[in-house]
Design a protein around this nucleic acid. Structure first.
Length: 469
RNA sequence: GUCCCCAUCGUCUAGAGGCCUAGGACACCUCCCUUUCACGGAGGCGACCGGGGUUCGAAUCCCCGUGGGGACGCCA
């Protein structure tokens, strides 16, 4: 049977790193098996679902390049279908109306907690042969509850965690339709997974406890059970749980911060999954290798430093045109307009090996398109009065020189040797005057790309501004 | 409280009873390269949560602790 997986986010917020990994694994599993990957938006919580969140999730998926074969389906558009199934279950005696008020339920829970019991519905409205039900209250609109089996156990072989067995005595009759008639999560999931022919449910392990309920429901409907794979959660960089209040950020934030989607994907792939010692691989390779057997059952801590390393790697690989475009976009956001000269592609090539993120790359390269901000400590250290005559003579040589890194190097060497100095003694002041910083690629290469006119202008201008030297 | 899950270097992980003197990667440290900073190269530091079993043999299997996490909603 063809593999069919799904990613089923609820649109109550952006796509965060945990959701992204779940989506990635589901997607990769389908791709690996030439199956289908389905996107389903679980928006039955009307109060918390928003169209903005739907959009944010779709944006995140697209940025990562996780393409889906069917959907997006929206559960709110499938109401008729759920209601029909609920009615059928009531008719068949597999579900029943419950007239308990919320207050009544709260009281029940509290009492059970106090007694050290697991809080659960006591089944007071559950019809049984020979049982007399309470009198229906006038003012309580009923919910619909599923008649969960009272004995036996639910067992499944989780593809990540192995065999899990839960006694039906731990479960209660869950609500499948609210008082207003709308179906609830566990019910919609079951109907959808069933009708959409999902063969492998790959999801976060916060759903482990829902699984036995869903299996019971599926069995009541006479559906074929899918296989389950529960992924452990991803912890924040500090080892703490990610939440809206703490550390959980949108995958799009990684875009803003200057991470390439291939780096994020590669990082996520290795978080909780492994293929021997392989660390760096393409998504094509990942789809070929991916399997559920090598997923770690334990939680994983996010490590930004390793992401940085991967991102730096992909920045080195990316072609100059694309890199230049990304950098241009970011410089623009910083209020710097990129001109055709110096050539942005050459500029990024010069700096790509020393940037962890595109944001760093943009910041590093900024001085090519505007006056550098001089690091005063660096200036004080490297630009001393005795260097001024050297700079003057170099300036005049440079004015006569052909403009290539090699020719510039010769000119600098000439200044160095004719004044009896060491190379850095001249290179450092140049570096600070031209780039503003004491760190840069080879200064002759920088000058070659900066251009003759601009280089000479910056040097002249610096000397003119610092007559005290 | 009850149920469920998890446990190898700081972090991500390899490990399916002997291949383990526990391997790789990030980070960190040292050295090399060098025109500064990076990149790159070569080394180094560094872990099987504890206790009992099973076995000729256990990081691997079982049990008990301990520690972490999750779930107990008319949320998903």
């Amino acid at each position: 049977m063809a593999v069919r997986t799904r990613f089923a986010p609820s649109p109550t917020g952006f796509l965060h790193i945990g959701g992204a990994r779940t989506a990635l694994f589901s997607w990769a599993y389908a791709r690996k098996h030439q199956g289908e990957f389905i996107l389903r938006v679980e928006d039955t919580d009307v109060a918390r679902s928003t169209p903005e969140a739907v959009q944010a999730i779709l944006d995140g998926m697209r940025w990562l390049g996780l393409d889906w074969d069917e959907g997006p389906f929206y559960q709110m558009q499938r109401m008729d279908r759920y209601k029909a199934v609920i009615q059928r279950m009531i008719d068949e005696g597999k579900a029943y109306y419950c007239y308990c008020s919320k207050e009544e339920l709260d009281a029940m829970r509290e009492q059970q907690m106090q007694q050290g019991l697991k809080p659960r519905y006591d089944g007071r409205w559950r019809p049984e042969a020979g049982k007399v039900l309470p009198t229906k209250p006038e003012d309580v609109p009923p919910v619909v509850r599923f008649k969960n089996p009272v004995s036996g156990t639910v067992v499944w072989d989780d593809l990540v965690k192995g065999r899990i067995e839960i006694s039906n005595e731990e479960l209660d009759d869950l609500i499948i339709a609210r008082a207003d008639g709308t179906p609830t999560y566990n019910f919609c999931v079951v109907v959808d997974d069933w009708e959409m022919g999902i063969t492998h449910v790959i999801r976060g392990d916060d759903h482990v406890n829902n699984t036995p309920r869903q299996i019971n429901l599926l069995q009541a409907l006479g559906a074929t059970l899918p296989q389950y794979a529960h992924l452990s959660m991803i912890l924040g960089d500090d080892g703490q749980k990610l939440s809206k209040r703490h550390g959980a950020v949108s995958v799009m934030q990684y875009d803003d911060d200057g991470y390439l989607p291939e780096a994020v994907l590669n990082y996520l792939a290795r978080l909780g999954w492994s293929h021997g010692d392989d660390e760096i691989f393409s998504m094509a390779q990942f789809c070929e290798w991916f399997d559920l057997d090598h997923i770690t059952p334990s939680a994983a801590q996010f490590n930004t430093e390793k992401l940085n390393w991967l991102n730096a790697h992909y920045i080195k690989q990316t072609d100059a045109e694309r890199l230049a475009e990304e950098v241009q976009k970011r410089l623009h956001a910083m209020g710097v307009s990129v001109t055709a000269s110096p050539d942005p592609a050459k500029v990024v090539d010069l700096y790509r090996e020393r940037a962890n993120t595109l944001q760093e790359l943009a910041a590093a390269v900024r001085y090519f398109y505007g006056q550098p901000e001089i690091d005063s400590a660096a200036a004080e250290k490297h630009i001393t009065p005795d260097i001024v005559p050297v700079m003057r003579s170099l300036l005049s040589d440079l004015g006569q020189s052909e403009w290539s890194a090699e020719a510039i190097h010769v000119a600098i060497n000439h200044a160095v040797s004719s004044h009896g100095l060491k190379f850095p003694k001249v290179a450092m002041p140049l570096r600070v005057m031209l780039t503003g910083s004491a760190q840069s690629p080879s200064i002759d290469a920088v000058m070659a790309i900066l251009g003759k006119e601009e280089t000479l202008a910056r040097l002249e201008s610096y000397l003119a501004r610092h007559s005290e030297l």
